[in-house]
C-alpha cells in the first residue's frame, strides 16, 4: 500500500495528465453522438448571454445590408402567404425569427447559436432557414438560447431532391469549404446538369418540402460506382448570417409519434 502511494506521489503528474487528457478526449468523442452534446447544452445559457452582449455591438455594422435583405424577404413572404391563403390548408408552417449570436465556419463541426429558446417554443430538431436557403436543425435548447447544427457540420445529413426531375439524394458536408456541400446517392442514369436547383425533399419530420438548398456547381460520374459525384453551391452564405427563421411544422410531432410506433 505504501509502495503504491509512493509510486502515485512520484508519478502524480503522469496520472493527473492521463486523467485530464482522458476527460478531454471523452468530451471530443461524446460529441459524435447526435443527441449527446451535453457539454454544449449546459454551456449554451451562460455563453449565449455573453456572446449576445458582444454581438449586439457588432450587429450595428451590418444593419443596412440586413434591412435590404429583410425587405426582400418580406416581399417573398407576402407572396407565399397569398399562395397559402388560396390553398385553404389548415396546417400552415409557423415561422419564428431569431438573431444569430455566435457562429463558426472554419471548423469541421461548426455550430450556430441563436437568441431564442424553449421559452419561445423552440424544440430540438426544428428546421432553421435563412433568407436565401436552408441552414440546419436545432440541436440543443436552453430557456433563452438554442444551438443549431448547420449544413456545414460534418455530422449533418439532409434528404434533398433535384427540382427538375424529382430524384432524391442525401446532402452531406466534407469539411472543406463553407460554400459547398456534397450530394450523394443520385444514380448515374439520372440526368444532372450544373445549375440545377436543389430543394428539400420533405422526407423528414423537420423540414417542409421545396425549400431552397442550393444549386449544382460541379457534377461528375465516378468511375467505380453507379452514382454521381455532385458538388452543391449552398444558397446560404454562412459567413454573413445575422438572422434566421425557425420553422415549426404543426404536424411533425404527430408524424414522429406515428413513425416511432412502427418499430
Amino acid at each position: 500500500m505504501r509502495k503504491l502511494l509512493r509510486l502515485l506521489l512520484k508519478y502524480y503528474a503522469v496520472f493527473l495528465f492521463l486523467i485530464l487528457e482522458g476527460t478531454a478526449i471523452a468530451l471530443i468523442v461524446s460529441q459524435n453522438h447526435y443527441h449527446n452534446a451535453v457539454f454544449i447544452n449546459a454551456s449554451t445559457g451562460i455563453l449565449g448571454y455573453t456572446s449576445e452582449k458582444w454581438s449586439n455591438l457588432t450587429h450595428y455594422f451590418s444593419l443596412k445590408k440586413e434591412n435590404e435583405k429583410l425587405i426582400k424577404e418580406n416581399l417573398k413572404l407576402h407572396r407565399k402567404l397569398e399562395e397559402i391563403n388560396y390553398k385553404d390548408n389548415e396546417y400552415v408552417p409557423e415561422y419564428i425569427t431569431a438573431k444569430v449570436v455566435n457562429a463558426s465556419v472554419f471548423k469541421q463541426k461548426n455550430y450556430i447559436t441563436i437568441n431564442i429558446g424553449e421559452k419561445h417554443g423552440v424544440k430540438k430538431q426544428m428546421a432553421v432557414m435563412g433568407h436565401t436557403g436552408v441552414i440546419g436543425l436545432v440541436e440543443n435548447t436552453s430557456p433563452h438560447y438554442a444551438t443549431v447544427i448547420p449544413i456545414i457540420n460534418t455530422r449533418f445529413h439532409l434528404s434533398v431532391k433535384i427540382k427538375r426531375n424529382g430524384y432524391f439524394g442525401s446532402l452531406s458536408w466534407d469539411g472543406q469549404s463553407y460554400q459547398y456541400a456534397q450530394l450523394n446517392d443520385i444514380p448515374a442514369y439520372v440526368d444532372v446538369n450544373t445549375g440545377d436547383t436543389i430543394l428539400t425533399s420533405g422526407l423528414s419530420t423537420s423540414f417542409p418540402d421545396n425549400k431552397l438548398v442550393g444549386t449544382v456547381s460541379k457534377a461528375k460520374k465516378t468511375k467505380n460506382t453507379a452514382f454521381w459525384d455532385i458538388q452543391i453551391q449552398l444558397g446560404t452564405d454562412f459567413k454573413q448570417l445575422t438572422s434566421v427563421y425557425i420553422i415549426k411544422l404543426p404536424l411533425s410531432e404527430e408524424q414522429k409519434k406515428l413513425e416511432n410506433s412502427n418499430d
Binding site: F17, L20, E21, T23, A24, I25, A26, L27, I28, S30, Q31, A37, F39, I40, S43, L47, S51, N102, S104, K107, K109, N110, Y111, T113, T147
Partner: peptide, 15 residues
Amino acid sequence: AYANTPGINAAATVF
C-alpha cells in the same frame, strides 16, 4: 466552450 468545440482545445493544451 466559447468555440463550441468540446474538449479539443483542452486536450491539445493539457498535452
